[in-house]
Design a protein around this nucleic acid. Structure first.
Lengths: 240, 240
DNA sequence: CAGTGGTCTAGACCACCAG
DNA sequence: TGGTGGTCTAGACCACTGA
């Protein structure tokens, strides 16, 4: 450990629990020990346990419900800072039917000479996917994704014809950091065709990279019809 | 007040102090009462006061120093990571010369029937500006901005030929909340001409609204060449 | 050195809600 | 309805650091 020495007790308890969550020992939905149990585990008073667990709740890592208990939160792509809505919820929220059409999936090594892919792979293999998000049968977004099989080995067994890669990852892999790069392009032939747009129409491109505790998880590139879609981000001066 | 009723005591104490800071009663650098003083003011135990003030420290609104006391934090320069980068710093960071060319500025009432403009104005008048950000003399972004003269009366006297509206506002008006809406458009004739692009070229559009403690400050619409510019946002799962 | 925040305790009562 | 988290108390000792 790193801060096991100088840190205060509630900080160590918090770090301990945080490590189990980020390490995957406690997956999303896992129920934490009740406060009384943690008191005996750490040999301290309830206030101290409560301070540690409440801090994790404030940070959004866990959800606390009276009578039910405390649970590892299902990570939401809905950060306070930049809100890239989950595409499926976005579409169903509009009252449209959502579907994901998987176009291709294959396992491969990182491309030679591509340092970013190599770092993503982390010495393992990659799962490369292409697919389309459909709203009421009409194409809504194109997705190209790479998943590190080292970070998410279970992805090799997942059936992405049934659940979109993004939704699957949200359910199975906790993330601690993400980066979006947003730009605009003119739709070229294949993209225009896939999105049912006129060639040259403006499209919004979001490239997202995701980490869990410093380890790369996935890269995704999403293409949206530019005039029909809008990304919304709401935030304050914030800490970072 | 709003949450004075149902909220817990430490939440009310926190909201109370927060209101004094955001309202300007306690300016940056102001020293807060010591915990013992707050105990008597609110008639509660020190733990309760501590919880409220510590939460404000976590939120970055105040800074606590042993022996010295607790002080209202000096607002940081631009949250750096998240918000859309200040265009001037962005350009100078690339080693290019920055300039802002003011195209028009006038004072006017909110447009009839435009509820958003009416809310922005808050019963006062608006300052409407148009201008271009230049990098090494070449157009880099177009800006259309509305400033609430009720929220920022000093803007009426500012010389936006010398300093861009965004930079001026950052210097003179603290903000507590902002919202970005990002989309893509094809450049029409005037926009293409102003940005020196081919007609139809994909452009990134950022519309930002800014608040201070619930009061609207400014609306801005920025148009960037889509393929030459990229917005980057990095973030964690976050609280809200 | 003394005043400040940082931490911790061993209780207590309460609100809530899933079983 | 009982178990859970939410809150609060009235103390206590300690670490730090500015006057």
């Amino acid at each position: 450990m790193s801060l096991t020495d100088t840190a205060s007790l509630h900080q160590r308890i918090r770090a301990d629990i945080e490590a189990r969550i980020l390490g995957g020992d406690w997956p999303p939905g896992h129920r934490l020990p009740v406060e009384a149990e943690l008191m005996t585990q750490y040999g301290c008073s309830r206030m101290t346990v409560n301070k540690a667990v409440s801090a994790l709740a404030d940070a959004g890592l866990i959800v606390r419900r009276r009578r039910a208990g405390s649970f590892v939160a299902r990570p939401r792509i809905h950060s306070a800072v930049l809100d890239i809505p989950d595409i499926q919820s976005e579409i169903t929220a509009r009252g449209e039917a959502y579907a994901f059409r998987l176009l291709s999936v294959r396992r491969r090594a990182p491309a030679r000479g591509d340092a970013d892919e190599a770092e993503l792979a982390g010495g393992g293999a990659l799962l490369a996917l292409r697919g389309a998000h459909l709203a009421s049968g009409r194409p809504f977004a194109l997705e190209e994704r790479l998943i590190s099989l080292r970070a998410a080995p279970a992805a090799a067994e997942a059936d992405f014809a049934l659940v979109s890669p993004g939704a699957w990852l949200l359910e199975h892999v906790a993330w601690t950091e993400a980066e979006n790069r947003i730009s605009a392009i003119n739709a070229d032939g294949p993209v225009a065709e896939a999105l049912a747009l006129d060639p040259g129409a403006a499209c919004l491109v979001v490239r997202r990279r995701t980490w869990r505790a410093g380890e790369r998880i996935t890269n995704v590139r999403l293409v949206f019809p530019g005039e029909a879609y809008e990304l919304v981000a709401r935030f304050g001066p914030g800490q970072a």
